[in-house]
Design a protein around this nucleic acid. Structure first.
Lengths: 149, 149
DNA sequence: CGTTGGATGTCAGCGTGTTGACACGCAGAA
DNA sequence: TTCTGCGTGTCAACACGCTGACATCCAACG
């Protein structure tokens, strides 16, 4: 390596720090979920359905920060594994509300525990008040960038 | 939409907030750089080279959180546009130190200003001390997840 | 000195995600 | 009522990024 990883001018950027933290979290989550044969988008999909039963494909896509098409593929994979269930016909409009199967709930319980362990490790250096403050600061960043979100 | 975007149990997760903030930043940066015909990885590559001249492809890849192969493609695209220059032969080992061309420095100046404007907008609600604190908190998260980083 | 290990650049192959487009269904305005 | 706009689900085509692999080069060690 031609340059040391030492504190450089770039580490002073909050945007770079944000990306670094998100990348580290993503990598760690991926490693934690690998033993359950789940990718991060798949886990996010399950978690979203569990917290908001009846969510549509488009809603899930927005919640997981991917396109509808990608979420559609994720959803199909989860359906093939009998982890989520969607009605064949739309009860209202075109949206197909997704729900977890018992197997899905069971797998999610394990996955959620693994992810929570990761988050706990990330937040270990912080007090409860500091965690709350960090959460609030991140939400403020989002609001400043996308007021309509 | 079957469910409102209201404050749900998921918004209490710091990990989710982190991903949301990173996604919002990424989207906003992408929009700001589109007029300069630059993608976020391309901008990151230019910025890294500018701050650490002589960086190798592998170093750039680590700094931009992508693989060497992806960064190699980015680097070629920038070379084809005469924005960065790399020697044909390695002066030492196999690493080819990258440097900005005058055109690259010029374009980077505009891109850097655009990105700084985005970051300023994101950080507008924060005081200088709060910005510093947020930056420190993010670095702490990274350290907790990847002690060797 | 020879050899082992680590690091780099590059190639092929594949999976994934995205952009673009289309058909369908609801709600509101003319 | 009709029609326009919007949201949704789905398909095809493309581009991007990653995994795996290989050859090369330096450093360190026996």
């Amino acid at each position: 390596m031609a340059q040391a990883e030492a504190v450089g001018p770039l580490d002073e950027s909050v945007g770079y720090g944000l990306k670094r933290a998100a990348a580290a979290l993503r990598t760690t989550m991926d490693a934690a979920l690998r033993s359950l044969d789940l990718t991060v988008p798949q886990y996010a999909c399950l978690e979203l359905i569990a917290r908001h039963p009846g969510l549509s494909n488009a809603d899930l896509a927005r919640g997981a920060f991917v396109t509808r098409q990608s979420m559609n593929l994720v959803l199909r994979g989860l359906q093939d594994r009998d982890l989520v269930a969607r009605p064949a016909t739309a009860p209202r409009g075109r949206a197909l509300p997704s729900r977890l199967t018992p197997a899905g709930e069971e797998l999610l319980a394990a996955a959620s525990a693994a992810v929570r362990a990761v988050e706990l490790r990330m937040l270990a250096p912080f007090s409860a008040a500091e965690q709350e403050r960090l959460l609030h600061d991140l939400a403020t960043c989002v609001r400043a960038l996308a007021p309509d979100a």
